[in-house]
Design a protein around this nucleic acid. Structure first.
Lengths: 343, 343
DNA sequence: TTGTATAATGTAATGCATTACATTCAAGCA
DNA sequence: TGCTTGAATGTAATGCATTACATTATACAA
């Protein structure tokens, strides 16, 4: 591989001039710039990034930590992230933590050695110590998206989870449902707590009682939706929910399978609302009513935020993006033998 | 950040000794090794990878190029890849090409500058020139998985596509289907051509005619399955297929939606087979019969293969893994008014 | 014309780990 | 005891781009 020296030789100037022609073109004569450009083309030079990184103490690499690459929810966020990053000359290193603490540690360790410049966290399922220690000690550029730590104030991009949940419940209530259950994500997760809060407050606002057995915990995956769905649908009919709000589309789809198995029709006997609006939600049977998050935009915002942090700009502590309830075919008016609608 | 010098100082030896204690412990006294170890702990040293990479001309980074991160088919392959890589001290840089040529180019450019040591291609949708040029000129470590270029012999991990397709068709035929159609992936893709070959040869073996309108091209996504499905299902009844073999599960699910829209029952009126066995295929309605690929193992094999290439080991040119037909609820015996089964 | 300010370019130090080569030291042998 | 040999360690060059500082060239003013 040719080095900057070869270019300098070919352009008949010093390496410093070549470097400047590349990094600060305005500091160099028009003529020199051209000479350097053609020399670079001639020798086929491209800078050795290891050397550059060593010198500049930066890597132009951003680590994005997520709980599970396989989850389609993240794919569009990643696309948004990457687009912004690439435009700005940054590379994205995707880190799948798979609920495995060691992995996260390894990715955090990239920062102090200049192998990465910053981190975007799409998961809160990592040891809090990693974050506090790093953020305090070495002031690591760190941005969160979707999730957050309630103990900490980090720059964060997110949606209004309580509101989104409340809207979903409000819609179900407007359809005449009174027995509304919810299958949550992992409850150590603040966003799930928020959604449950939104659920409860809206239930209260609608004067609907909440049976404690109507709030069950899943893990966002198909299977947990299926299993928890079985439990909910096996309740005696006066207690069994006529509508269920799920914290993910995958769980909603698992739930709908449980309903089929139990010969409970969706939406005639049971209304289902999901969360995320993944591609699949339009193709499942019935098509899923769901809360849509602006995933691409979440990714973009998070990356922009992190780049601003890196550039020492002032950044907002919170960026809240709006959600939208997408009504499809999995929700319908409450079944006839339901209690009369509120006076 | 402390450097190797600080360690040398603390351990009262030279930097060379510290380096050796880390890289070739056997070249150093037991005593020194311990001294160095505790010095490292004391000063909190971790090596600057940029400097190491610069010196060693390697990056311990593997680029994995895929057509679309959002496709759940890849997620498990990635998990397998990453697991092997991390175990061996390598990092994985995921590159989403999004059918965009420029991206691929950019990732290939990482190699000559030692920003990456090798590439695993999970897509053939990149300019062939990139591969030939690189592979010829600088002998770039390159391994393919799933897909391949038929013009080139690169180390490749894959399944027997013609066989897998033939098995699917054979199964449909055994159920009495005679009008069997197929929705393919992009036909510039050798694996799709292979699957069509397998389809055709098995149809021939079963003495079943192939109507040219039964072979239609999709792009692996939900929507294309839906659209091509509409076309196939709109055919006059004597021509309309009673079974359709899709090159991806997403297309199969799109197709099933088209069937619902047209009030065609699956599997009673129409049998559907997918390909890949993505998580969803168990949760759609009806559950999807599909060809399962050992995705995790494909990922592992590909990474092992690449690491072998990097270590200049002799590697096999082809590694063929086996598939399995998973029979679920989307396939059933051909509808009654079908032509009599073959004499 | 000489001096000064400014732009353009060059020189050389720097970042950090690795490693070829040089040196030291101790063990083993005659 | 003196010499050989090999292990252990040290010295210093190396990889490559960047940049502080030094030097030269150019333009303009006095």
């Amino acid at each position: 591989m040719p080095t900057i020296k070869d270019v300098a030789l070919a352009a008949d100037c010093s390496t410093a001039t070549v470097s400047r022609a590349l990094a600060n073109p305005e500091k160099v004569t028009e003529a020199t710039r051209k000479r350097v450009a053609s020399a670079i083309a001639k020798v086929g030079y491209s800078p050795n990034l290891a050397a550059r990184n060593l010198r500049r103490s930066e890597s132009r690499t951003i680590v994005v930590l997520l709980p599970d690459i396989a989850n389609p929810f993240f794919s569009e966020i990643i696309a948004g992230l990457e687009d912004v990053a690439h435009r700005e000359g940054y590379r994205v290193l995707l880190g799948d933590c798979e609920h495995d603490t060691g992995r996260a540690q390894a990715y955090f360790d990239l920062l102090p050695t200049n192998q990465a410049d910053g981190i975007i966290l799409l998961t809160a399922e990592i040891p809090l110590a990693l974050v506090t220690q790093q953020a305090r000690g070495s002031q690591i550029p760190l941005v969160m998206a979707c999730e957050y730590f309630d103990q900490l104030t980090l720059p964060t991009v997110r949606i209004d989870n309580p509101l989104a949940a409340a809207r979903a419940v409000e819609y179900l209530s407007s359809l005449g449902h009174r027995r509304i259950a919810t299958i949550t994500g992992p409850m150590q997760n603040p966003i799930c707590i928020d959604r449950v809060k939104g659920y409860r407050s809206e239930m209260a606002r609608q004067n609907l009682p909440v049976n404690s057995r109507w709030v069950v915990e899943g893990d966002f995956g198909f299977l947990s939706g299926y299993q928890q769905g079985q439990g909910l649908l096996a309740m005696p009919s006066e207690e069994r929910p006529s509508a269920i709000f799920c914290h993910s589309d995958e769980m909603a789809i698992g739930l709908m399978k449980a309903a089929r198995d139990a010969s409970i029709r969706v939406p005639e006997d049971l209304s289902v609302i999901g969360f995320d609006n993944i591609g699949l939600s339009e193709y499942c049977q019935p098509e899923l009513t769901t809360v849509s998050q602006p995933r691409d935009e979440i990714g973009r915002c998070a990356m922009r935020l992190l780049l601003d942090v890196l550039r020492k700009k002032q950044v907002p502590h919170q960026q809240v993006l709006s959600t939208q309830l997408i009504v499809r075919a999995s929700t319908a008016p409450a079944p006839a033998p339901a209690p009369a609608p509120r006076a």
